[in-house]
């Protein structure tokens, strides 16, 4: 089953790397904004505002997490050896992330089922679970970028990326609230987006500087000619989006609620550019600097079967995701569980 003259053992691992990358990107954007809304819950003034914020993510948050399951599943079936190495190296942050995701999932359901007096406690549990998951994912990113190095400097860098990714999630979550909320909450969401943008940018700069410095191979990929010219649009467009959003958010909400989708679209653009930069840096390595996708790929026969299933499953997930966003388009409504 050759593709454009390439043997299956060559193109199938690349195809699965692409699918896994797509799943990770969609997870980071989609679950990123609802984790961010969970983080921002700490800034809500009262129960009504917390209800409104939860309602803004209510129809979407659990479907958003399916992309994490898909990405991890693809890593396991397509690159089983890398799955063992990566999840072994990231054991503690993965365990903490799962604890956080469990806690926020249960808190989301229990906050309106329990006695009214305990609602605030479950909102705090939702905030805590969101923070734990976001920080653990940021720690994993930092650890991955450094090739799972140990030591105080590596831990300090992972702590910076943990805070940076949590800030980025809060930023995109605030942009989502600009789309979905109205009135005072929308105005405050624009302020939150502006105040978290700087911290997210610091995390982005930290990863962007560290990635080429940690590896001669990655440095050569970015700074050799003509790559340095061809790749320049990535950092330039990212910087332009960051600056443009910082300026624009000062004028939100706009009269008549026009252009309320622009900050969220800009945030998605920044996430996509950052992901493209990371993917370009590390490709074709799935374990940084150690194992390429071809060295750890499952047998081509197995990959061919899984790819056939993926061709049907992935469009279905995309379709129901798009359908749910279409059904629940517009401003947030009252959150109901019955």
């Amino acid at each position: 089953m050759e593709l454009l003259g390439y043997a299956p053992a060559l193109w199938l691992p690349a195809a699965f790397a692409g699918l896994m990358g797509l799943a990770i990107l969609l997870y980071v954007v989609l679950d990123g904004y609802d984790l961010g809304v969970g983080l921002l819950l700490g800034g809500a003034r009262d129960e009504a505002e917390r209800d409104a914020m939860i309602a803004a993510i209510g129809p979407f948050w659990d479907a958003n997490e399916t992309w994490l399951v898909l990405a991890t599943g693809l890593l396991l079936v397509a690159f089983p050896m890398a799955h063992g190495v990566i999840l072994g190296a990231l054991y503690l942050p993965v365990a903490l992330m799962l604890l956080g995701l469990i806690l926020r999932g249960v808190a989301f359901k229990f906050r309106t089922k329990m006695a009214p007096g305990s609602k605030l406690s479950w909102d705090r549990a939702f905030l805590g679970g969101s923070a734990l998951a976001a920080l653990a994912q940021g720690w994993m990113l930092g650890s991955y970028v450094l090739g799972f190095q140990q030591g105080w400097a590596a831990n300090l860098f992972a702590a910076v990326t943990a805070l940076g990714l949590a800030a980025a999630y809060a930023f995109i979550g605030a942009c989502w609230l600009v789309v979905k909320a109205e009135g005072e909450l929308q105005r405050r969401a624009a302020q939150w987006a502006r105040s978290t943008l700087g911290f997210a940018a610091l995390g982005l700069v930290a990863v962007s500087v560290a990635t080429p410095l940690i590896s001669d191979r990655i440095f050569a990929k970015w700074f050799s000619l003509p790559n340095v010219l061809l790749l320049a649009p990535i950092p330039l467009a990212t910087a332009a989006l960051l600056a443009g959003l910082w300026l624009a958010l000062g004028r939100y909400p706009r009269p008549g609620d026009r252009w309320n989708w622009v900050p969220f679209a800009g945030a998605v653009g920044i996430f996509v550019l950052a992901f493209v930069g990371l993917a370009f840096s590390f490709y074709p390595y799935v374990v940084p600097g150690t194992l390429t996708i071809w060295e750890v790929a499952a047998a081509p026969e197995s990959l061919a079967v899984i790819l056939t299933a993926s061709v049907f499953v992935l469009p279905m997930i995309l379709a129901y995701t798009a359908f749910s966003y279409w059904v629940f388009r517009g401003k947030l409504g009252t959150l109901r569980y019955e």
């Binding site: 063992g84 072994g88 054991y91 503690l92 365990a95 903490l96 604890l99 469990i102 806690l103």
Partner: peptide, 19 residues
Amino acid sequence: ASDVPAAMIATTFLGYMGL
């Protein structure tokens, strides 16, 4: 079995049980 230290596995196990 992975080479993750036993103490770390025990800690996360207790964390899950507690939660």
